[in-house]
Nucleic acid binder design. Structure first.
Length: 348
DNA sequence: TAGGCCATCTGGTCCT
DNA sequence: AGGACCAGATGGCCTA
């Protein structure tokens, strides 16, 4: 992305003069050595003077601070003497700053990559209409919460409440997007596939999709789509229309998922189970694996033995739960689902 | 045009 | 000492 010089033009010279260093016009230099940046920013007026010159001291650079300190007129300043920004020091500072900038850039890129991976496992993922960072995090929080609720209390994803949970605290456009995804995606694709290929009773039935969300005034697409691999993998859960469904039988309805995955993470968020290597790489049956994993791993898992149960987490009935932040969810229907996301979180 | 979102630079702080 | 992390500041892009 092209960026223009930061700070107002006058800031640099003002600061430089106030610090008594940097005779050169550094504003003409690259901020980090990359072509897209073209200035040197030292405009932290809100933070007060930046005493860059006081660091990076080499003995050979040590000089007396001769900024008019006559002793009898101005009280001598305490603390380390301020060093003149010699050319050598400037260059060292620049080199260090450039390196730090590069590190920071790559750190942020890594963060964004991780966020992108998170977007992909969200209930609605669209390459064209990306969720913002904050909305991604909010939706992730809601999603985890909603799924936890489904697992813990047998609530149904068919319920209005499930989508409500997903949309809690989201902006209106994002809520519409999510609702649209849930409305369009599963009902017209995945569940019909389930019914077609697996003979799952009720899947895609006329009575409406579990995930369908009564959203009057919902804007028309483009929406993202809810990938089947992101949806329901129903095995071994009573009360669902899919309880007799074998994951192996239905794996054909699950499109491949193109991306490396880490071993499953607990939805409690407090532990990560290091298991066998991710089956995801080139494995069309990953969701089968995930389903099996979930259904064969009790909560709390043995790896949590001895650890204090999370306060009031829905997976640990009996404990008092306090909703974090502004979350306050309503109760909803009965049945169990498990999604592949419950057990797979990307990592770089 | 205002506001939201984003990338980038930057200095400070903490940690190893 | 150097790196990671963080938050503030800034300008660009996009959309309502």
């Amino acid at each position: 992305m092209m960026t223009k010089p930061y700070g107002k033009p006058g800031d640099v010279s003002e600061l430089v003069s106030s610090l008594g260093w940097m005779e050169e016009d550094l504003s003409s230099q690259d901020g980090d050595g990359t072509p897209e940046t073209g200035h040197y920013s030292l405009h932290r007026s809100s933070r007060g003077p930046v005493e860059i010159g006081s660091e990076d001291m080499d003995e050979e650079d040590e000089e007396e601070d001769e900024m008019g300190l006559d002793g009898d007129q101005v009280p001598k300043r305490r603390g380390p003497k301020k060093k003149k920004m010699t050319k050598a020091r400037q260059e060292r500072f620049r080199a260090r700053r450039i390196k730090a900038n590069a590190r920071e850039r790559s750190r942020m890129h890594g963060l964004n990559d991780a966020l992108d991976n998170l977007r992909r496992v969200m209930p609605c993922y669209s390459k064209t209409q990306k969720l913002s960072k904050i909305e991604t995090l909010r939706l992730a929080r809601n999603y985890i919460w909603a799924l936890s609720e489904v697992l813990e209390s047998g609530q149904s994803p068919e319920s209005h409440g499930f989508v409500e949970m997903l949309c809690k605290g989201l902006s209106q456009p994002t809520s519409n997007l999510v609702a649209g995804c849930l409305q369009l995606g599963p009902s017209t694709t995945m569940l019909n596939k389930l019914e077609d290929k697996c003979g799952v009773p009720g899947a895609g039935a006329p009575q409406g999709h579990p995930m369908s969300y009564p959203s009057p005034g919902l804007p028309s697409p483009p929406y993202g789509s809810m990938e089947a691999s992101h949806l329901l993998h129903l095995k071994g859960f009573k009360g669902t229309a899919f309880e007799n469904t074998s994951p192996n039988e239905c794996s054909s309805g699950t499109p491949p998922y193109d991306g490396p995955l880490t071993p499953p993470l607990s939805i409690s968020g407090n532990f990560a189970l290091k298991q066998e290597p991710s089956p995801r790489e080139g494995d069309r049956n990953f969701t089968t694996h995930a389903t099996h994993y979930i259904s064969s791993h009790p909560y709390p898992p043995s790896s949590l033995a001895g650890l204090p149960a999370p306060q009031g987490h829905p997976l640990f009935p009996g404990s008092r739960y306090e909703l974090p932040l502004d979350m306050a969810f309503e109760p909803f229907g009965q049945s169990h689902i498990v999604t592949s996301q419950m057990t797979s979180i990307y990592s770089e």
